[in-house]
Design a protein around this nucleic acid. Structure first.
Lengths: 234, 234
DNA sequence: CTACAGTCTACTGTTAACAATCCTGCCAAC
DNA sequence: GTTGGCAGGATTGTTAACAGTAGACTGTAG
């Protein structure tokens, strides 16, 4: 996920605190694969390597647990979360429910200013030469698009539920490594269509659209997971 | 919410830690109204009154924030969350989405053992003399019933999303203070019907049922909030 | 009376030392 | 060979002291 480009004007600039930095660092380390799945996160080690005391590390770990990137057991410590087919099923079924609500609410509440970021992401996507496009870059744009959609819904609790899923979805998006041309074009079309429908306040069609979109994403993911699983079993 | 009566067998008895106790104490204090809405939670005070250092208090506050009972701002401290009509709308729209998914998944995954607690709660409800029934007791049974439903869905992430809403819903259930006879009977009927449908794996009807149930609950709540708001304005 | 600057206090954020728990490896007993 | 203690080390949970910030308070000038 890229840092949000526009800081909203005249809003109380929320102060960053050590825990925030630590959480960002750990999240990045996990997402970039520097920490392997299942690896233990030892507070002392992290504290030393990040030059911080254990307090902020501790809080950051709890935050990442809430994001689903880490599992923590009392007196046993934290480990990087592992993902299974079952997890994928959970994540995408919940995601579908949340995105449907988001679309519905966005159709009701979104102003044109809320939709501008979605438009901007699509334009940005178009402006990037296909040759320089990386899997990671697409994943970031994808997450940013949906993030903006959830923001446009103006539903704080829904947004927090989405936050608990977001990083886990990002992990999935990074799994595959090919970037076929037809994926890029269909990515653009699907998102552009969705935006148009929300803009038209066409709730029913938008709902069908997002549902299909998420299901397609899950289908591709599942296929990939089954493939790699089969390959690993060999 | 009453403590769960049956501890599941052969499961790693998760050790309780100070943070857990503190979180429970604070939650109880908020739900019982001992802490008023908007009241500041001062770490030092709480630490002293609970005879614990500030560490566990801190963590407990973050946990309650995640449950939506408390809002926390950097360098400013935590306050007990206040609820508005807008919040009620958010909570019930999200709740509807989550419960629909829960019902769907429960129809797919629930074993008879998962449904037994639901049955038990209904029996318990019947066994309590109407005269001794309190608003709080009904609220606890209500939350417990839905909690068991979410458990029966066998969907860890969905359950965590529900946990982030549960206490807030409980607050709403405690708001009104009358306990009309027809409310009690319709409560029983609605929940019994829902259970029967899940047991029959009748996903479509169960979905319609839960949707109606949540919408009715929201309708009653909204009416009440508008009433008290109007009364306060006078 | 209002607007503004500087100080002061109460509180949160951070640190580092202390206590409790879990896990490992070892050894003895059966 | 397997089971059951029993140290010892590694790691988390807890505490208490230190550092930094936000908001209130005071006093002064316009």
């Amino acid at each position: 996920m890229s840092k949000s480009p526009i800081t909203p004007p005249l809003q109380r600039r929320e102060r960053r605190v050590l825990t925030d930095d630590v959480a960002d660092a750990l999240r990045e380390a996990i997402l970039s694969g520097r920490f392997k799945r299942g690896e233990r996160l030892i507070e002392d080690e992290l504290a030393e390597s990040l030059n911080v005391s254990r307090g902020p590390i501790r809080q950051a770990i709890f935050r990442l647990q809430q994001e689903g990137l880490v599992v923590h057991e009392t007196h046993r410590g934290a480990t990087v979360a592992q993902i299974s087919l079952q997890d994928a099923s959970e994540i995408y079924s919940l995601r579908k429910a949340l995105e449907k609500l988001a679309v519905e609410q966005a159709c009701l509440n979104a102003t044109e200013a809320d939709l501008a970021p979605l438009e901007a992401i699509l334009l940005l996507f178009q402006s990037i030469p296909r040759a320089t496009m990386t899997r990671r870059r697409v994943a970031e744009l994808d997450i940013d698009f949906h993030d903006a959609l959830f923001r446009a819904a103006h539903h704080a609790r829904l947004y927090r539920a989405w936050e608990a899923l977001r990083s886990q979805i990002f992990v999935f998006l990074l799994l595959r490594d090919g970037l076929p041309e037809d994926y890029l074009t269909s990515w653009y079309l699907a998102h552009a269509r969705l935006l148009a429908m929300v803009r038209n306040r066409d709730s029913a069609t938008a709902l069908a659209c997002i549902e299909e979109h998420i299901e397609a994403a899950y289908g591709r993911l599942k296929e990939h997971l089954l493939d790699t699983e089969a390959a690993a079993a060999r």
